[in-house]
Amino acid sequence: MATTAPPAESTTVWTKEDAKASRKANNKLHRREHAWAAAFMAPPVIGWIAFLLFPLGFSVYASLTNWNGIGNMTFIGLDNYTRLLQDQYFWRALWNTVFYMIGIPIGLALSLALALALSRKIRGRTFFRTVYYIPVISSLAAVAILWQWAYNGDFGLVNQALGLIGIEGPNWLMDPTWSKPALIIMAVWKGLGYSTLLYLAAVQAVPRSLYEAAALDGASSWKRFTKITWPMVQPVTFFLVVTNIIAGSMIFTEINIMTPTGGPSWSTASLVWYVWNQAFRNLQMGYATAMALVLGILVLIVTVIQFRINRANDFSID
């Protein structure tokens, strides 16, 4: 059997030149890949710079100026911030805004309860899910007008319903004591469907095996809720708390529609409502921007604290 020598090209001998050529080819390939990667990344980066970073930087600068929003800016250092500290209406608006946050835990508790109820096999489950979600997709302006009527002191739906159980309801939107709770109730109602939907998905994702094991160990319903359901839906709770605080700090439309002058004794004026009035009605754009930035920083601080608390409570199932 004749044998033949292997072809010369099959014995790979790497010379310096070969390595250089290969590196060159690789570099060329990498460069091309890098160029493509940069091209794909450029639009969002440019968008981020143009629509986030630049406006943010501009806002910071504007907050250090005396600017009416139409003319030239004059740099005044921290004057807007010192003015803000002495402005009683800023603090009142901030307090009102913080007060509105009471609605967040109430809304979350109700949403979780509803999600737990809707996760069971009850009749009309789909119908109820739809009903609770309708306010979420309804126009906020239309909802605000409807609630304005519902809160009517004499013949509003809310007081009529309270009257059925013997309670004489207050004149909700005209009473400084009740105007903020009135807005909170409306906000909770409006946001209930969205939170419920997220909780529902989280509740349904909890492994059944955990409940079965707990049941075998004799855990009560309450124990199963506190030790399994609640920790397992914690990421959703965390997400909802963060997003609700951000959204709650920006409450504006319902206030502007339901109490356009800031409510009785200015009891409903939120910070964003005050910012808007200062910027567009009173031509104090620089001052309004300073207030907006302070609000943003406060939201950031609260959010960072939340992230830290969440990290401390973090757990995983091995």
Binding site: L52, L53, P55, L56, S59, V242, I246, S249, M250, F252, T253, N256, V272, V275, W276, A279, F280, A288, T289, A292, L293, L295, G296, I297, V299, L300, T303, V304, F307
Partner: peptide, 21 residues
């Protein structure tokens, strides 16, 4: 990244809140 995004989002939303009206 999430904190950064939240920060930028919150600040920008707050700073540009005039537009909500």
């Amino acid at each position: 990244a999430a904190i950064t995004a939240t920060m930028v989002g919150a600040l920008t939303l707050a700073a540009c809140s005039g537009g909500t009206g």
